[in-house]
């Protein structure tokens, strides 16, 4: 399943809760303010790294660039554009958008 989060990890607990529920084989995509969770030095870093062996973590590049956070992305996080976002949605049978 694909988990999509759009809230900053230092503002809301959505990233934290999502990462607590995600299962190996699933994917997580950070968009909008959640792109901060894909970068180095945040409150979410340890938890993102902890799930990464079994979970594919993606970040939406346009949202990342819009916030000037390019170049700070955690190793192993994959960048996707809007086309890649659509591909992720179609590749997974279910999708949850964490509010």
């Amino acid at each position: 399943m694909l988990h999509i989060v759009n809230k900053s990890p230092s503002d809301r607990n959505s990233v934290d809760t999502c990462l607590g529920h995600v299962k190996p084989g699933s994917a997580v995509l950070f968009i909008e303010d959640a792109v901060y969770a894909a970068t180095k030095g945040t409150v979410a870093e340890a938890k993102v790294k902890a799930v990464m062996p079994g979970v594919a973590v993606y970040v939406l590049e346009p949202d990342l660039n819009a916030r000037g956070m390019q170049g700070r992305v955690l190793d192993g996080v994959k960048l996707v554009d809007y086309g890649g976002f659509v591909d992720l949605v179609t590749e997974h049978s279910t999708c949850q958008s964490w509010l």
Binding site: M1, G20, H21, V22, K23, S26, T94, Q96, L99
Partner: peptide, 18 residues
Amino acid sequence: SQSEMGDLMNEQDVVLSF
């Protein structure tokens, strides 16, 4: 538990968040 909740989510056809 949170882990069991994660398993349940994974089993669904549709998940709606509120």
